[in-house]
């Protein structure tokens, strides 16, 4: 199939950036979206043009490195699918595609479709873990965990940290991302001890990093490639209220 692409090109952080038109020719329906961009890039390189820079690594939807906005939707039109796992069979011959980086106040553009997501890492760094040392821990079965709790924790822990939720949110909020980590750890007995301090430092850091707040648009859940549920945001609020009550 043949497609017309409008791709965001931006030299660096300070450049203004613009959409540039490219043609993608003879694209098989079985290649992935990123493979389609690889093909376009090979053509650009051969013509002596600067290829489009974009992030990817695992290309199997688990590392969270890739991320682009395709026709206004983070990770493109397929539900629960990262852009590296999106296949061209979901597009039609003659389609026009607008391809842009994940945009948010906290995500400066590095080049073209690559953004700097350090701000997300800062949220985890502030306290998104259990403070355990290597060694000296009890047997794995010493603390029993109800299956439904382990399953619910896993539902939250599946987050791949790609930032689509933030790009989709009109407020540029990292609430779903933060809530997923807060919930994952708060639902496990090992994580309960620090649950109160954790939710406080993580939400504080989130605001400090320039992420907005949540005003219940639920755009985040709609684009999340792992289907992380907004009910974890409610869980975050409950944890927050509990923690503040204890202060």
């Amino acid at each position: 199939m043949n497609l017309t692409l409008y791709v965001w090109r931006q030299e660096d952080r300070n450049d203004k950036g613009r959409l540039v038109q490219y043609e993608a020719r003879d694209i098989s329906r079985d290649v992935s979206f990123l493979e389609m961009l690889d093909i376009v890039n090979e053509g650009l390189v051969k013509k002596g043009d600067d290829p489009i820079s974009f992030d990817s690594d695992c290309r199997e939807g688990i590392c969270g490195m890739c991320g682009q906005v395709v026709n206004g939707v983070a990770h493109g039109p397929r539900k629960k699918t990262t852009v590296c796992q999106l296949h061209m069979r979901h597009f039609k011959d003659g389609d026009t595609l607008y391809i842009e980086p994940f945009r948010a106040r906290a995500f400066p553009v590095i080049k073209d479709l690559i953004v700097d997501r350090t701000a997300m890492e800062k949220i985890i760094e502030s306290g998104g873990y259990i403070s355990v040392h290597t060694g000296g821990v009890p047997d794995g079965n010493a603390v029993l965990i109800a299956k439904r709790d382990a399953d619910a924790a896993m539902d939250a822990a599946e987050c791949i940290g790609c930032g689509a939720c933030i790009a989709a949110c009109p407020n540029g909020s990292a609430m779903l991302f933060t809530a997923a980590k807060v919930s994952h750890l708060a639902m496990l007995p090992q994580g309960r001890i620090e649950a109160g301090s954790r939710v406080c430092v993580m939400t504080e850091e989130m605001l400090k990093q320039g992420f907005g707040n949540c005003s219940n648009h639920y755009e985040c859940e709609a684009v999340c490639p792992k289907g992380i549920k907004v009910r974890f945001i409610a869980k975050l609020y409950r944890e927050f209220i509990k923690a503040k009550g204890n202060l």
Binding site: T134, I145, Q190
Partner: peptide
């Protein structure tokens, strides 16, 4: 044991 202590949500049976 280390991973469990870190909060890795390994699969559990119905008895936990």
């Amino acid at each position: 044991d280390q991973a469990v202590a870190q909060g890795v949500p390994f699969a559990r049976d119905y008895a936990g």
